[in-house]
Amino acid sequence: MSAIVLFMAVIAVIAGWWLSQQRLMSKPWLEEGALGDFPAAHEMTWPAAKIGLGVFLAVVGSLFALFISAYSMRMNMTDWRTLPVPGLLWFNTAVLVLSSVALQWAYVAARRDDMEDVVIGLCAGGVAAVTFLVGQLLAWQQLRAAGYFVASNPSNSFFYMITAAHGLHLIGGLVALGRTTAKAWRGVEMPQLRLSVELCAIYWHFLLLIWLALLGLLTGWTDEFVDICRRLLT
């Protein structure tokens, strides 16, 4: 359970930092009056959708941290045979990075008010993401063809389950991306569009980050890394 506990610690630090700005030590019964009359508490200036996305990412993060925890606990059992990672995954990873880059590019374009580039960026990002998903399916197919079925070893089961969970999150993102692209197509004004593009980009970066973490886990690199750290400490 160390992955999830670590994740919770990070959340606790963020929450603690935010709370520390909220004047929790003040004595509210002495502070009568409108907000301007005493040192103002930090006001939330982000739009609701952006905060909403932030909170949602915390939930998604918790979900994957739990998958990782389960993985690392189950891994220590004797029947574990690590799955050979199909080479296709490297290609998929590169595509996912491209997808993220494209969305970042769209976001930058949106800040520049360059509608054309936004549309190109969004479309490129979408196409790359779909390519990634297709690549993942192919990777599944390759594994199945090579005899690595879901139930034949827990490491296989985890592989299918975790990649499926990640893929489903990406599909959810594609729905949002599709709507944003449609908006851009229809020529919605830039100020309205900018936020949507930004949120898509953030979500994409987050899913990329999670994918990299999962990749590290599935290839066993995280494990080696933790091992090295442990040796350095002792």
């Binding site: 909170v55 915390a58 939930v59 918790s62 739990l66 389960a70 879901v150 089961s157």
Partner: peptide
């Protein structure tokens, strides 16, 4: 609510894994 948002994923993960065990014959 914040606690629930962070804690329910654990039940979610456990449920999904148990469904795998029950329906696909995995051994989580």
């Amino acid at each position: 609510t914040i606690m629930a948002l962070l804690a329910f994923p654990a039940l979610f993960v456990a449920s999904v894994m148990m469904l795998f065990d029950r329906l696909l014959g995995t051994s989580f």
